[in-house]
Design a protein around this nucleic acid. Structure first.
Length: 202
DNA sequence: CGGCCGATTATCT
DNA sequence: GATAATCGGCCGG
């Protein structure tokens, strides 16, 4: 598994390095896992797209805490979104996990998503993967670096950097420029993940 | 396909 | 009181 040193750096450096890592969730003694394929970086007070830009509040306080914690928040009146906290205590930073390629526990993921029948794909969106992995407000502040935890990262697969595409963050709506267009999103294509996985997941 | 729209409520100015 | 780091359904071509 990955330890606190891995997470202890600015979000814009952590986010690209999360591509290819394996997200593991133990739920009722069963193991769910997927390869992270899309991430977005959110920084501190200067970043007008980040929840942290107003300073510390009740909702966002975990963003200022230890790197390697989960920041899980509720939005649009119905969705949970899962982030991993980056950077040292007192510095704000988090990485939104936007997509994961499923590799273990697919049946359980399907059970966790009751409306799967109406959904074409499962894990290619931040609210979808949070639901499939059973991540909600109860996991906010959870430490991914604690021993014997039920949520953590493993090494996963190694991804050549030239396969990862970069672009602006998604869904920021009214966020003013330049924060709307700065390339802070990293993505590995679905077909390319499949190929890399066939070469073996560590 | 692509684009538009409604759902539904915690959070912040 | 407005908005939101989204999703899925429904429409038209």
């Amino acid at each position: 598994m990955l330890y606190i040193e891995f997470y202890d750096r600015p979000a814009e450096l952590l986010a690209p390095d999360l591509i290819g890592k394996k997200l593991v969730r133990l739920q009722n003694g069963r193991r769910l896992a997927g390869i992270i394929t899309e991430t977005e970086a959110y920084m501190g007070e200067g970043d007008l797209g980040s929840h942290a830009h107003f300073g510390k509040t009740k909702r966002n306080q975990v963003i200022f805490e230890k790197p390697g914690k989960a920041y899980v928040y509720f939005t649009y009146g119905m969705h949970w979104l899962f982030n991993i906290v980056s950077d040292s205590v007192g510095k704000a930073g988090a990485v939104l996990i936007r997509a994961v390629f499923p590799v273990e526990g697919l049946e359980i993921m399907a059970q966790n998503r009751p409306n799967l029948a109406n959904s074409k794909q499962w894990l290619n969106g931040p609210a979808k993967l949070a639901q499939a992995f059973g991540l909600d407000g109860r996991m906010n502040g959870y430490d991914l670096t604690q021993p014997d935890g039920e949520l953590f990262l493993e090494e996963g697969i190694s991804v050549p950097t030239d396969l990862v595409t970069v672009g602006p963050r998604v869904g920021l709506g009214k966020t003013p420029e330049p924060w709307n267009s700065i390339p802070l999103r990293w993505e590995l294509g679905w077909e390319q993940v499949k190929e890399l996985i066939q070469n073996g997941v560590k």
